[in-house]
Design a binder for these strands. Sequence first.
DNA 1: TAGATTGTTAATCGATTAACAATC
DNA 2: TAGATTGTTAATCGATTAACAATC
Lengths: 217, 217
Amino acid sequence: MDNEIINIPEPVLRRLVRYHYYLLKQVETGSLMISSTSIADHLNLDSVLVRKDLQYTGLVGRPKTGWVTEELLKAIESTLGWNNFNDVFLVGAGRLGSTLLHYGGFKNYGFNFVAAFDVNPEVVGTEINGIKILHTDKLVNLAERMHIHIGVLTVPAENAQVAANLLVEGGIKAIWNFAPIQIDVTKDVIVVNAQMTQEIAILANKLSGLLKAKLES
Amino acid sequence: MDNEIINIPEPVLRRLVRYHYYLLKQVETGSLMISSTSIADHLNLDSVLVRKDLQYTGLVGRPKTGWVTEELLKAIESTLGWNNFNDVFLVGAGRLGSTLLHYGGFKNYGFNFVAAFDVNPEVVGTEINGIKILHTDKLVNLAERMHIHIGVLTVPAENAQVAANLLVEGGIKAIWNFAPIQIDVTKDVIVVNAQMTQEIAILANKLSGLLKAKLES
DNA sequence: TAGATTGTTAATCGATTAACAATC
DNA sequence: TAGATTGTTAATCGATTAACAATC
């Protein structure tokens, strides 16, 4: 009833993902306890910031010792919703789509691909990594029947809006859009765009700052 | 000498990318002039924020009319450094790597793939989208000779650190890392991680907020 | 106990929004 | 001119950092 997964600020979410990754490595190396100071040191952050962020998990640390590493890892997973599966549809089983299907790692983040869709007769009917590729005709009906909430969009830009409409028609509530185009959806549907171009812009800006600093020194 | 591409805050960079995309569409539809209010309306932002952001381009708008659409587009491109090519090496010509090579769109963002590297004898010597795949042995020497500054890392997690070391040894200054692992580099090298897991976390958090809001209403 | 680390309250910093004069 | 839109200065908001008491 009192679900805690609510409205966590984006910067905090991004850092929780980084803590998760670091803790995973620490658990593997046999670390039993972990402190905010050690996390902060490794990720180049302030330890107070780490403690503030970790409060979103609801877990309380022990002075002098910190947190039980594995407990904290689980708490972060639960806060991020990575401990229960979300069934996911993928639309567009081309190069990028099949790359995502082949990569099994998304399961660790609660993303469970249950079916993929395409119109290309060469791929419809085949399987990628155990996931069936079906014709897009079947999407709306199946999404409704299976109560799918999440769709991943990996179609070419020119087909993205049509594909998005199908997802929405099928009752999908959130779309992860890899098509290099802004898609229009009704207000009650969430769109998260894959932000490769933004990452390129950030990289280029940092690089030019670095090169300039070097010139001046 | 007085290069303007310096130290723009990340949120501003991310929005400049969105303005760029919107302006591109507007130019295509024949729009000659554009105002901060119309940009703000379409992207669900405050118009003052848009004007503040656009000041980073150095361009001044005209009261009552706004900016010349195409001029503003060019100014944003120049601010983001998208008007001149950066030669880029890609390491790891597997599924993801070849998907990126096939996608020609990165050229529009100043990313020019000049060579790719792998160790798999089946791909070394072949070409993808006109880009030669060479053996990783050749990376360091070629990077030095060609003065490459940017590397894209699309190798499996277990090879990522070794590949990153090669890039750094070759004098590369910035790495766009798609491997699901944190790579260690010397302080003077920039690493921008592809943040798919962060995007998943943001999507899941927004979705659970939405579903909860619906439950309560 | 002493020391390390937590969690909290206050201060600072940076980014966004509000108010408004300037201008085409 | 009147109205729309710009750019600037001040106010607000949110996120980060600093200071410090609480605790194991």
